[in-house]
Design a protein around this nucleic acid. Structure first.
Ligand SMILES: [Zn+2]
Ligand SMILES: [Zn+2]
Ligand SMILES: [Zn+2]
Ligand SMILES: [Zn+2]
Ligand SMILES: [Zn+2]
Ligand SMILES: [Zn+2]
Length: 909
DNA sequence: GAGTTTGAAACT
DNA sequence: CAGTTTCAAACTC
């Protein structure tokens, strides 16, 4: 889905709500006068911005909320946009169809085009007035009318919010918000006091439970005084599988609605808070991820282009191939919604997602901007439990239209797939990345917010969250998920959480309330002890706290082709490798599997059956990729090709299970079955035999045909080792670190996220497969009191390597005849960019200990216009990952001034 | 929820 | 390093 946003004369915030059947996604767009930025955040922050926004009032049919004292933000459900029924907030909370009433002085409408395009219209003509009127009627309204048949995106909601709402957000209201199923998608409080409207429920209602594979493109056009930048609505994705289902989708609304109610949709909430004038991203960086058990069915790409004629800067934000699927836990029926799980995301860690296959490149929130400043930028994402949003790629591009013009391209993919590919975490991370990018872009604007601490929270209601409602009841520990406060919910008994046994400690987090540890000393009050022990451990093993998942270049020795354009592709892998003996790398006992990465040559596993890629296939794939990268693919010997094909087939086979609607649980079962078979076969033949006829195949048969292609796609992902690894949102840092270590030291640059890179074009893409990853915690930076890393501990890692190589493997496979269609391919391979980025980054003063991997924006903007595939390819990735470091111990911590050193330390044990 | 399995971390 | 023990998560029932 492509959203085009017209440039705004003055800084304004657009508040988008993206509806998926299960999870509404809110997009927050801020367009300062000079820049047009898009934030995928639904948070009160916009309220602040709204005051600033010059958006004209729209006189559209937008409906105000009669009962609301303060003007409610204008929210229009895409589907219902035409409807003008006024509803009280409470009503909204219950997802009444008329959810989006508003007082409208200002209205933006987004029309959903059946053709999968969404048009955003800025209807207001009145000049300004809006923000002043609190309680007032004036409002900026964005109406989104999704016409996309796919139902992937049921609704897109854009709204401008008052300051009041911002206030509401402040104080972590969301945290307190009881998330109960009764609220359905609307996890929010709907009290008038909140001044916060909940539109989520409605969104879910409209959404089709089914997620067509096609990616609807939403073209948002602002109709107003300001010039629009044409955006290509053509989305290949939408065309691909979905075809014309719009009508059907609508027909399903009722059904989906009922389902939603039953299923207890989670709520995706993005809250942006302004606490202080300045950004303090470092303060709260935490991502908690809860694996979603539902299948991701919904896929859509959102592409937002906004151009500011004045500055000549174009901000293009594209979320391509974001899929949102709500599927039952079982994954058998797509219509069913996944069971919600609580996910807390601190947007400080922003992860942008790449295309589905693409690895996740996460962008961590820049501390630098915040640092030295009092402002806190805290982003918290609580995704609705149901949020199965998968965005294969999203981009924010700032295209230099003039000399100053710079293109910021961020590619974010949000995919929430419980069992399959994507996790809510991914979505969150992607959202964060987008936010961060935007933040950078709008750093000046943010600076303007001296008094407010901007906190973005995405709240996701989860069943677990519900459980939390009852005091004394501890939320179920989500697999591989962090708590929103960043802790890992450990359950240590004897280690006092001061050994690496403790996930919290190992991840650099303080234990939190959600931890059930006993005798815990991993608390802020014991900071001295914690630091001391941490240092001791690091003295023994400098890499003890280093990311475990690293992105390795295919060939470290081959860095740059003669032409200087190509870099060897990199893949994610476990830095130390696993040592599995019995699990066959099919269970989470295996750290590689747990991290959703393939086993690599560093693994000492026996009988590796890692569904993400077998150890034995790792080298081959990399070699092939490398050859391809070096244009030697054609020269592959026929036998090599055969082998490659075989490997691909294996991967596909394995992937089918993984990627298809199988829930994590089911997947586990599958693996278990597989394992049993394997073991059995071992006993008999001593060799692992996997025939297509095996259970795995049978499982695959369960997959709806729509899913099947995706599974293929997933397979390709495996082959695309790099993407896979990248895809793991959980440990972006690790990946980066690895890269740095392996041989692109130059490329490893630390750039401050926000302030330093505003002018720099960046593309961020993140892809993630699953939410299960435990590693995610590492990438996550927890905010909150309990988290030691909160302020200065964050480390940013920039990977030297570009993300472009990711696709190569898949392409190669395709070349060999693979049928996978959806392989995300980033044609971004641009060593130049890397160089540029690296240099740029280097030049940047390292105020934050963050390493960032940045790929310069693709010079070719055409890609954006190109088909979805093209868009995917075009999407460049830069990974800004914050590695949670121990507060004091890590070089990052102490060295605000020099991240380079830190990076060195990390990379060089 | 108790008990078992597993492999990393820690220890020798 | 290798071998063993410890540990907490993953998993099973
Ligand atoms: Zn612990
Ligand atoms: Zn803990
Ligand atoms: Zn603890
Ligand atoms: Zn393993
Ligand atoms: Zn492994
Ligand atoms: Zn393995």
């Amino acid at each position: 889905m492509v959203v085009t946003v017209p440039p705004l004369s003055s800084p304004s915030v657009l508040y988008f709500k993206y509806y998926s059947s299960s999870t509404p996604l809110l997009f927050f767009i801020v367009s300062p006068g000079t820049y047009n930025s898009v934030l995928f955040v639904d948070s009160p922050i916009y309220s602040y911005l709204s005051s600033l926004s010059p958006i004209q009032q729209a006189k559209s049919a937008a409906q105000g909320f009669p009962g609301l004292v303060s003007p409610a933000p204008v929210l229009t459900s895409p589907q219902i946009s035409t409807q003008t029924t006024s509803l009280t907030r409470q009503q909204h909370s219950y997802a009444s169809g008329s959810e989006f009433s508003q007082d409208n002085d200002k209205c933006l409408k987004i029309d959903r085009v059946l053709g999968d395009s969404m048009t955003l219209t800025h209807q207001s003509n009145d000049v300004l007035t809006s923000s002043d009127q609190k309680g007032g009627d004036a409002r900026d309204l964005l109406q989104v009318k999704p016409r996309s048949p796919s139902g992937y995106i049921d609704g897109l909601l854009a709204q401008l919010v008052d300051e009041k709402y911002a206030n509401f957000v402040r104080g972590k209201h969301f945290d307190n918000v009881p998330q109960s199923p009764q609220y359905g998608c609307m996890g929010r409080k709907d009290s008038a006091e909140d001044g916060y409207m909940n539109l989520d429920a409605s969104a879910s209602l409209f959404e089709q439970p089914e997620c067509a594979q096609a990616d609807p493109i939403i073209n948002v056009k602002l109709v107003g005084n300001e010039p629009w930048i044409a955006s290509s609505t053509e989305d290949i994705h939408s065309a691909s599988s979905i075809g014309n289902k719009s009508e059907q989708a609508q027909g399903h609304h009722a059904d989906s609605f009922s389902e939603v109610n039953h299923l207890q949709h989670g709520v995706l909430r993005h809250c942006l808070q302004y606490d202080g004038s300045q950004w303090n991203s470092a303060v709260d960086n935490s991502v908690s991820c809860n694996p979603i058990h539902s299948q991701s069915k919904f896929q859509d790409s959102l592409h937002v282009l906004s151009t500011v004629p004045k500055d000549g800067q174009l901000l293009n934000m594209e979320k391509s191939t974001s899929t949102i699927c709500a599927s039952g836990m079982n994954g058998n029926s797509r219509s069913s919604f996944p069971r919600p799980k609580g996910v807390g995301l601190h947007l400080n860690n922003i992860v942008s997602a790449a295309p589905i296959t693409g690895g996740i490149e996460s962008v961590q929130s820049p501390e630098n901007t915040a640092k030295g400043k009092n402002s806190l930028f805290n982003l918290r994402n609580h995704f609705g439990c149901n949020a199965n949003v998968k965005s294969s790629s999203s981009k924010i591009e700032k295209v230099p239209s003039s000399a100053k013009n710079e293109m910021l391209e961020s590619n974010a993919c949000i995919a929430a797939t419980s069992g399959r590919l994507l996790s809510q975490d991914t979505m969150k991370s992607s959202a964060k990345g987008m936010l961060l990018k935007i933040a950078e872009q709008h750093a000046p604007l943010l600076d303007m917010l001296d008094k407010s601490k901007c906190k973005l929270e995405v709240l996701e209601s989860v069943e677990e969250d519900f459980s939390l409602d009852s005091p004394g009841k501890k939320r179920k520990k989500a697999l591989n998920s962090k708590d929103y406060d960043g802790c890992k919910r450990c359950n240590c008994k004897k280690s006092k959480c001061l050994k690496l046994y403790c996930d919290c400690f190992a991840a650099g987090f303080y234990c939190g309330e959600s931890c059930t540890c006993q005798g815990c000393s991993n608390k802020p009050e014991y900071e001295d002890t914690v630091v001391d022990i941490r240092q001791q451990i690091e003295s023994k093993n400098p890499l003890a706290f280093a990311p475990r998942i690293v992105e390795s270049v295919v060939d470290s020795h081959v860095n740059i082709v003669e032409d200087g354009n190509s870099l060897p592709p990199a893949s994610l892998r476990h830095k130390r490798g696993c040592n599995c003996k019995k699990s066959m790398c099919l269970k989470k006992y295996c750290e590689c599997y747990q991290a959703n990465v393939s086993c690599s040559d560093g693994c000492r596993c026996e009988g590796c059956r890692n569904v993400y890629g077998r150890k034995e296939d790792y080298g081959m794939v990399r070699e092939i990729i490398h050859k391809r990268h070096t244009n030697e693919v054609t020269e592959l010997a026929s036998d090599e090709k055969l082998e490659l094909v075989a490997a691909r087939d294996r991967l596909m086979q394995d992937k089918v299970h993984d990627f298809n609607s199988l829930t994590p649980h089911t997947l586990s079962l599958q693996c278990s079955d597989l394992q049993k078979k394997v073991q059995k076969s071992r006993l008999t033949s001593g060799r692992y035999v996997f025939s297509p006829n095996s259970d795995l195949n049978g499982l695959s048969s369960r997959h709806s045909r729509t899913n099947y292609p995706r599974s293929l796609h997933g397979c390709s992902m495996l082959l695309e080792g790099r993407e896979v690894s990248v895809a793991n949102p959980f440990n972006p840092c690790e990946n980066l670190e690895e890269t740095c270590d392996e041989g692109h030291p130059n490329s490893c640059q630390f750039t401050p996220f926000l302030s330093h890179l505003p002018t720099t074009t960046m593309a961020a893409s993140a892809s993630w497969k699953r939410t299960d990853l435990r590693n995610i915690s590492q990438s996550q930076i927890s905010s909150g009191d309990s988290h030691p890393l909160s302020n200065s501990s964050l480390c940013w890692h920039s990977s030297p390597t570009t993300s472009t190589t990711e696709v190569d493997g898949s392409q190669i496979l395709q070349d060999f005849g693979s049928s996978s269609k959806n392989c995300d391919i980033s044609a971004d391979d641009t060593p130049e960019i890397l160089k540029d980025s690296s240099t740029t980054v280097m030049s940047v003063k390292v105020s934050s200990p963050n390493k960032k991997r940045i790929s310069p924006p693709d010079p070719c903007t055409d890609e954006l216009k190109s088909s979805s595939l093209g868009s995917l390819r075009s999407s460049r990735r830069f990974i800004l990952q914050a590695v949670p470091r121990f507060p004091l111990l890590t070089p990052c911590h102490g060295s605000k001034e020099g991240t380079d050193q830190k990076s060195d330390e990390i990379s060089k044990p």
